[in-house]
Amino acid sequence: MFPPFTTQASSVREIMFKVLLALLPGIALYVWYFGPAILVSITLASLTALATEAVMLKLRRRPLAPFLSDNSALLTAWLLALSIPPLAPWWLVVVGTMFAISVAKHLYGGLGSNPFNPAMVGYAVLIISFPAYMTHWLAPQGLGQLELNFMQQLGYIFGGHFPAGVTVDAVSMATPLDTLKTQLHSAHSMGDILQMPVYGNLGGKGSEMVALGFVIGGIYLLANRIISWHLPLTFLAALFATAGAFYLFDPAHYAPPLFHWFSGAAMLAAFFILTDPVTSPTTIRGKFIFAAGAGFLTYIIRVFGGFPDGVAFATLLMNMCVPLIDAYTQPKVFGKKGEQ
């Protein structure tokens, strides 16, 4: 046994578990506004993640029990499932999760060694490989042309077919961010666009409430000191500042900053994705740089890029910079503060 002989009762498992717990309010609101299909993709992703984790551990000759029970694979699965449309063929989420766990996590050395956020890698692979499936989001309840019941949704997810006469466009719709982009292209003004039924008070109808759910979870994580405030607040501030600057410059063509906060995966990113300790910087100054960069890039990709949301690519781009950021932001240690 090595000193210290006494330790605080904390574990990776517990930390990951609390993060999962913090996702629950968001998920509950998701179900409330968009129906239970999300639960199907979360379940699918979880099972796939655990199976892939087990196979990879076996291949890497690592013990199964401690790593399968650390909840980290589950967290990746949940984050990925929350990032992709729930009404999608089953293999979409399975392929994404398998890629995230096997390539983005284990090929880089497993827990603690992956430079990129596995869930975001899974998302990036899916959106590049299957862009068509990735844009069909469920309409919030009461907004779609017609609504499928749960059995019909299952039928599509696992059977790949809708009930007779129903097309995918009838049950799904573009995300608020996508709608904004296409509507701006057809020369509608920002004011008119935000009056459309897909929009709520702050962001998209329904999705803004889900984002709020993630905020509640984030506050729980902050209160439990699972995450520190530096990353989420800096990210949100940077996103707000960038969006605010553009909005002030031309309010007719750029959405207000609060809209960017509450649409897409901004809140999920702020509290759950950027805060992945493995792929974010360890120094305080580094955290500011990392999160500010992610916030800025998220806006740029959202507004000027070709993808529905910028969170994933912004995260991955900043993940890439983490070793550099860490190396250049080393704080002065005790007794060396006077040195230049």
């Binding site: 650390d70 827990l111 603690g112």
Partner: peptide
């Protein structure tokens, strides 16, 4: 048993 470092700081 020790697990890998997750850089939680």
């Amino acid at each position: 048993p020790a697990l890998p470092c997750i850089r939680c700081t």
